[in-house]
Amino acid sequence: MMRIGELARLVGTSTRSLRYYEAQGLLSARRAANGHREYDESDVRLVQEIRSLLAIGFALEETRPFVECLRAGHASGDACPASVEVYRRKLAELDAGITRLCEIRDRLAAQLDTASERTRPCSR
């Protein structure tokens, strides 16, 4: 068993983040007789999963199916259909964002071309 500070150091986050994950129901702390939170290796894996998903742009709530999958005993957080569905939804969001950014870029490039034509120096 480890205390919250040890877990935070081990996974590279703050104790505040761990308490927040707990408040959101993503992490469950056991309490020692003295009231201190205690965690084990399964909690390390849960927090690592949460942090890796956050690092690639997932919202905290989107990590829930992955956490639940790990809690159900699966070796990977994406071994469950609900997790795969989150991947699909996130990929669709990214594709839509990329399409939108490409449209904006094309419009901006066209505006630049038009502006450049208007500001060309006179030829003699």
Rank of each mutant, 00 (worst) to 15 (best):
L18Y: 12
A96P: 04
R64F: 01
K90F: 10
G25T: 05
E103N: 14
T15K: 09
R64W: 03
E38N: 07
T63K: 07
R71D: 06
F58Q: 09
A110S: 10
D95E: 15
A96Y: 04
A55R: 14
I56S: 14
V44L: 03
Y20L: 11
M2F: 05
I4T: 11
L54R: 15
L53I: 00
A23V: 10
T119D: 07
A92R: 13
E62S: 06
R51C: 01
R118T: 06
R51G: 04
L7E: 01
E68M: 07
V84A: 13
H36I: 00
R120Y: 03
A79S: 09
A82M: 02
S123G: 13
A96C: 07
H36V: 00
L60I: 10
Q111P: 02
I56D: 07
Q111A: 13
M1S: 07
L91R: 15
R30S: 11
P121G: 06
G73V: 00
S14A: 09
R89S: 02
L60S: 00
G73I: 01
E68V: 05
A8F: 08
R16T: 14
T119Q: 11
E49F: 05
P65R: 04
R51E: 12
I56M: 14
E117D: 15
S76D: 07
T119K: 05
L112S: 02
A75G: 12
S116L: 08
E38M: 06
F58L: 15
V11K: 12
T13H: 13
L18D: 08
Q24H: 10
T15H: 05
E49P: 14
L101W: 06
R100D: 13
T119E: 10
P81Y: 02
E62I: 01
V11R: 09
S52L: 01
I56W: 13
Q24M: 15
E93Q: 11
A82L: 03
V44H: 08
E61I: 01
E117A: 15
R107W: 02
T114A: 12
Y39N: 02
R19T: 07
C80V: 09
L18F: 08
D43A: 10
E62R: 04
S52I: 01
G73S: 00
L27Q: 05
A33W: 09
F58Y: 11
G97S: 06
R118C: 09
A109D: 12
D95R: 14
M2Y: 04
